Amino acid sequence: TLFEALYDYEARTEDDLSFHKGEKFQILNSSEGDWWEVRSLTTGETGYIPSPYLA
C-alpha cells in the first residue's frame, strides 16, 4: 500500500526519516502504533515516520 505525505517532517532521532509534503511511501511495518516503518519511493531510504502525517 502506498501513502503520500501531507506535511514536511524533520527527523528527530536516527531511526526517524525526514520527508517533504507530497513524497510517497511504501509501508513496511505499521504495527508500532502511530510510528510506521516506511520506504521512501523518492529517496529509497527507510525509517520511521508519524502515521498522522500520511494519507
Rank of each mutant, 00 (worst) to 15 (best):
T1R: 11
L2E: 07
L2Y: 13
L2D: 04
L2N: 04
F3G: 06
F3R: 09
E4W: 07
A5R: 01
A5Y: 02
L6V: 06
Y7L: 06
Y7N: 05
Y7F: 10
Y7V: 07
Y7H: 06
D8V: 03
D8N: 06
D8G: 04
Y9Q: 02
Y9E: 01
E10S: 08
E10D: 13
A11Y: 03
R12Q: 14
R12T: 12
R12F: 08
R12I: 14
T13R: 14
E14V: 11
E14P: 11
D15K: 14
D16Y: 13
D16M: 13
S18P: 04
S18G: 05
F19E: 08
H20G: 06
H20W: 05
K21G: 03
G22E: 02
G22L: 01
E23Y: 02
E23H: 05
F25K: 02
F25T: 00
Q26R: 05
Q26Y: 12
L28I: 10
N29M: 05
N29G: 09
N29Y: 04
S30N: 11
S30E: 07
S31D: 09
S31I: 08
S31L: 09
E32S: 13
G33P: 11
G33E: 10
G33H: 10
G33D: 08
G33I: 08
G33K: 09
D34Q: 09
D34F: 13
D34S: 08
D34C: 14
W35Y: 09
W36F: 04
W36T: 02
E37P: 01
E37Q: 13
E37M: 13
E37D: 00
V38E: 00
R39H: 03
R39S: 02
R39P: 00
R39G: 00
S40W: 04
S40T: 14
S40A: 07
L41A: 08
L41H: 03
L41C: 12
L41E: 06
T42N: 07
T43N: 04
T43I: 02
E45H: 09
E45M: 12
T46D: 09
T46G: 01
T46H: 06
Y48N: 09
I49T: 00
I49P: 00
I49M: 15
I49S: 00
I49H: 00
P50W: 15
P50M: 10
P50G: 03
S51P: 11
S51D: 06
P52M: 15
P52Q: 15
P52N: 15
Y53E: 10
Y53A: 14
Y53V: 12
Y53Q: 11
Y53H: 12
A55N: 11
A55V: 12
